[in-house]
């Protein structure tokens, strides 16, 4: 059983003494500090976030995605052919992202997230999961006037992000996670999604994970379980219907069990978390479970995110004792 996170972590610390990214960005925007200084502060904040995840007792962490303005911009901003434009609401949340527009043929110009992965891996005592916004979701949240149809945009991004994943794998990333929340709202596109996944993981030597959140996989079942990745992440907070599908969960795959509500501050009880793990363990053996929040933790203030992780780790340890 692995205690882990899905992706992002709140950027602003509780301690007033710790480096503050918010003021650093605003000082950078007004020309008071250089880009190098901003990057140094981003590194310091990343370091703090990694230490916090390790302190909470996670077995596998992420770099907290401190440098990501949002899941789209971070990648699209460095893919040639995209222009980053106005704010759009991100799914049904009260957060916004900048919409990328593919105005020319999209091209990978070299690794986007590799430097950040290496930095995190070099300072973490536990494995660091590399995270990539998946091609379907990236395409769905963008516009692609250059492309004749949506499918060409998705497949072009699948190819580009495949190169990104291969670069991460070569650098030693043991687990590479692709985030694809958008497929849950667009189930009719599943055949295209399958095609994109096949291209995406081609030649990637790492263990691969596919995470969905903000919904459930009803109508995608059973094809979803046959997708060519090692770990499938599901949201059991918004997607309560996902419980019903676990009885068919494949024996050769691992499950990302999103049972901690990453969108509400209410702290789960240890008992409730153990109960959920026990429920999942009836269908998926403990050694194939990743216990994690329902989605990235950045919807929460930092102190709440940390408390939730501590609680999750405690419950996971107790569940292991009880159920092994």
């Amino acid at each position: 059983m692995i205690a882990t996170v899905v992706g992002n972590y709140p950027k602003i610390g509780v301690d007033a003494q710790s480096p503050n990214l918010r003021s650093a960005i605003s000082r950078f925007d007004s020309g008071q500090i250089t880009e190098e200084e901003l990057h140094r502060i981003e590194d310091e904040v990343t370091k703090g976030v990694i230490e916090e995840q390790l302190e909470a007792g996670l077995d596998m962490i992420t770099d907290g995605q401190i440098r990501w303005e949002d899941g789209q911009t971070y990648f699209a901003g460095k893919i040639q052919g995209f222009r980053i434009t106005g704010l759009i609401r991100y799914f049904d949340t009260n957060t916004y992202y900048r919409q990328p527009i593919a105005e020319e043929r999209l091209q990978w110009q070299g690794p986007i997230s590799l430097r950040d992965y290496r930095f995190a891996a070099s300072i973490s005592s536990k494995p660091v999961k590399a995270v990539i916004t998946g091609p379907y979701t990236l395409a769905k949240l963008s516009k692609g006037p250059f492309y004749n149809d949506f499918k060409s945009l998705v497949m072009s991004l699948a190819d580009i992000l495949n190169q990104e994943a291969k670069a991460l794998a070569q650098a030693g990333a043991s687990v590479i996670q692709f985030d694809e929340p958008a497929i849950l709202n667009n189930k009719g596109d599943f055949p295209l999604f399958q095609e994109a996944m096949n291209v995406l993981i081609r030649g990637v030597s790492s263990k691969t994970a596919l995470y969905t959140y903000f919904g459930d996989i009803s109508d995608l079942h059973p094809g979803f379980f046959e997708l060519p990745v090692h770990i499938l992440g599901l949201d059991f907070v918004v997607g309560t219907r996902n419980w019903a599908f676990l009885k068919d969960f494949p024996t050769d795959k691992e499950l990302g069990l999103g049972i901690i509500d990453a969108r509400n501050t209410k702290l789960e009880t240890v008992e409730k978390i153990i109960e959920a793990i026990e429920r999942a363990s009836k269908h998926v053996s403990l050694n194939r479970l990743h216990i994690n929040p329902s989605c990235g933790l950045e919807f929460l203030p930092r102190s709440n995110a940390y408390s939730k992780l501590v609680r999750m780790v405690e419950a996971a340890a107790r569940a292991k004792e009880l159920l092994s």
Binding site: P10, R22, I25, N304
Partner: peptide, 9 residues
């Protein structure tokens, strides 16, 4: 609550 991000900075 403590601070949560809306978008950008």
């Amino acid at each position: 609550s403590g601070l949560v991000r809306s978008y950008g900075n």
